[in-house]
Amino acid sequence: MSALDIIPLPGQPGKWGRRVLVEAWIEAGSPPVNDGGAGRLYDLQKYFWDGWADRLPGFNPADNPDDESQRLAHVRFGALDITPTPERVRRLEAAGLIRPYSYEPWHFELPNIRKYSIVRALPASATGSAGTQEGIIMAEAIVSAPNGVVVHLRTGGKTNFTKPGEYNTFRDQVAFLRDAGATDLMPLPPLDKVPKITWDTFNFLCAYLGAPNK
């Protein structure tokens, strides 16, 4: 996969797709994409699949991202969920997208979807290093894992702070840069205000952000 093949959907913060998909969507008039209805990283799909396979409360049916015989169009970054109207359907189909599921009329995807690979991480060219770049919102979270390590989670990565001094130094540096207008990083809470979370929540956040959980 080329680093240039995954690009943001203009005007749709936090949503990505294959370049060919985004170009077709633009050709169709850039209709609004539903929340969670664009590219979905492997780890997040795996989280949904594991929850469904274990029949955990709150999990809906989900495809196994390790079974590549399935279409897995969102995990291949080749599908968009768009509320259908006759005009949107006409434009999207004219742009080359298909609707393979009669029971999901909102689901539009590229033809021959299995030829595209599963996407496990966003290319650096798509995310940038921090803040907002080319319309992409970089999500962040500061949490205390059950092992006591404070973790700065961000889209595509994380930083562990095993000692209070490490975190406080980072917090001071971020505050200095924010005051100077030199960063879009979130303001960091005092160490005693960092929320403590469970491993389940930690793994969910890592999957959602595409950050490593080890």
Rank of each mutant, 00 (worst) to 15 (best):
T183M: 01
Q173Y: 07
A141Y: 01
T169L: 05
D184H: 10
P189Y: 11
W199H: 03
M138E: 01
G165M: 06
V151Q: 06
L191H: 11
A141P: 01
V194I: 05
D184Q: 08
D172E: 10
T132Q: 13
Y167W: 02
T132K: 10
K193R: 13
M186D: 03
N168T: 03
G165V: 00
D192W: 07
L191D: 13
I137F: 08
T159Y: 02
P164C: 05
V143H: 12
V143S: 11
E140C: 08
P195R: 13
L177D: 07
G165S: 04
L185W: 08
E140D: 14
G148Q: 09
V151L: 05
G157M: 06
M138W: 01
R171N: 02
A145N: 04
W199G: 00
L188C: 14
Y167G: 14
E134Q: 09
T155C: 12
T155H: 08
L177K: 13
K158P: 12
L191G: 12
R171C: 00
D179A: 07
G148A: 14
K193Y: 14
V150Y: 05
F170V: 07
N147C: 11
V151Y: 06
A139T: 12
T198M: 14
L185Q: 00
P189K: 08
A145K: 10
K158G: 13
V143L: 09
G157R: 05
